[in-house]
Computed example of a mutant assay.
Amino acid sequence: MPTPPPGGDSSPLHAMTGLMWMPTAPPTFPRMIAFHPQPVPVIPALMLVLLIAYFAGVVRLRLRGDRWPVHRSVLWALGIATVLAMTATGVDGYGMELFSAHMVQHMVLSMLAPVFLVLGAPITLTLRALPARPAGRISARSILLAVLHSRPARFLAHPVTSLSLFLVSLYGLYFTPIFDVLMGTMWGHNLMLLHFLAVGFLYFWCVLGIDPSPRQASRGLRRYAGPTVRILELAATAPFHAFFGVMLMMSVALIVGFYRQPIPGWGIAPLADQAVGGGIAWGFTEIPTLIVLGVIFLQWQRSDERRTRRIERSAARAEAERAAYNDYLARLASADERRGL
């Protein structure tokens, strides 16, 4: 059963208590990581469906005799587990009481979990697992391919669009009344968390380039698919996150009104907690940035190796053809000599 807000607070800020687990004790690490399912577990249920669907696709490939990299499955499961750690544990409850806990949710759901999920290559798995389209008929695979090649997909995959959506999650959410409105209901809260996850997935899907995307299929966007552009796109977010974090840490007033009332007995001042949240927003970006940079450089290295091997094979074929032609000329000359010509 959901617990009432500490100290009997009946303000509208906690009107959603009936549909959310609300902590009554100050945060500790064991309380933060303890399993606390919500009465309406929207996101945890969705994550379990995605996990089952992914491994159903892997099993389908195995039964067909095809292989799927184990590390892709591990990364997808890790991404799902990361989302569950933010939405099915004490972190979610404390995120309703403390801005710092909410900022942990925001950073993990928008910057860490999407990296693992993208590295799991779910779109590639789906395209391989779905049956090919029968002649003259529409299939799920053909619909997915049509979506990937559609004009809206090309618009979303453009660097300006994906980067703008990613940054709006910071400035457009916290510096407008939108945050307080969404936090006022359980559905708004879950919608905001799903927004973090979806925008992060879109951004890193384009930056990492693991799965097929409109950037690879569209001639107009192909120039944005190179490693140099993707590294610059990744680096472009760093100053915005840093500035956002510094603003929160240096502010002498609360940015959002939802956390304006201190929790009785916890001894945590809202302004000080906001500064902690700013530090989290500033410093957390280092972890996913290093992971993504490592993946891009590894892709770059493997691309150079493949190009080198391709050039070497082409040179070897040309040398073999030249040697065969010279041998052919030598045999013709030898035959002419034997005939006395």
Score class of each variant (00 low, 15 high):
residue 77 A to G: 11
residue 105 Q to Y: 04
residue 165 L to M: 15
residue 258 F to Q: 13
residue 130 L to H: 04
residue 336 D to F: 11
residue 204 F to T: 02
residue 158 H to F: 10
residue 304 D to Y: 11
residue 310 R to N: 11
residue 208 L to C: 04
residue 23 P to M: 08
residue 17 T to F: 04
residue 307 R to D: 15
residue 321 E to H: 14
residue 61 L to C: 03
residue 257 G to R: 08
residue 335 A to F: 11
residue 67 R to G: 07
residue 233 E to P: 01
residue 287 I to W: 10
residue 68 W to P: 01
residue 223 R to L: 13
residue 307 R to T: 12
residue 35 F to K: 14
residue 248 L to K: 02
residue 60 R to L: 07
residue 165 L to I: 05
residue 299 Q to G: 08
residue 257 G to Q: 12
residue 242 A to I: 13
residue 136 G to C: 12
residue 60 R to V: 12
residue 3 T to D: 12
residue 137 R to L: 13
residue 323 A to F: 04
residue 178 I to T: 09
residue 289 T to P: 01
residue 314 S to M: 14
residue 93 G to P: 05
residue 200 G to Y: 01
residue 152 P to G: 08
residue 245 G to N: 08
residue 145 L to S: 06
residue 229 V to I: 11
residue 284 F to H: 09
residue 150 S to Y: 10
residue 156 L to D: 00
residue 43 I to L: 10
residue 9 D to G: 11
residue 310 R to S: 14
residue 124 T to E: 12
residue 37 P to V: 10
residue 260 R to T: 11
residue 207 V to N: 00
residue 188 G to K: 03
residue 166 F to R: 01
residue 49 V to R: 05
residue 228 T to N: 10
residue 55 F to S: 04
residue 70 V to K: 10
residue 6 P to Y: 02
residue 186 M to W: 12
residue 5 P to T: 12
residue 112 L to I: 10
residue 152 P to M: 07
residue 210 I to H: 02
residue 24 T to S: 14
residue 97 E to H: 08
residue 318 A to N: 07
residue 197 L to N: 02
residue 46 L to I: 15
residue 86 M to L: 14
residue 165 L to A: 04
residue 312 E to R: 07
residue 252 V to C: 02
residue 307 R to L: 15
residue 76 W to R: 05
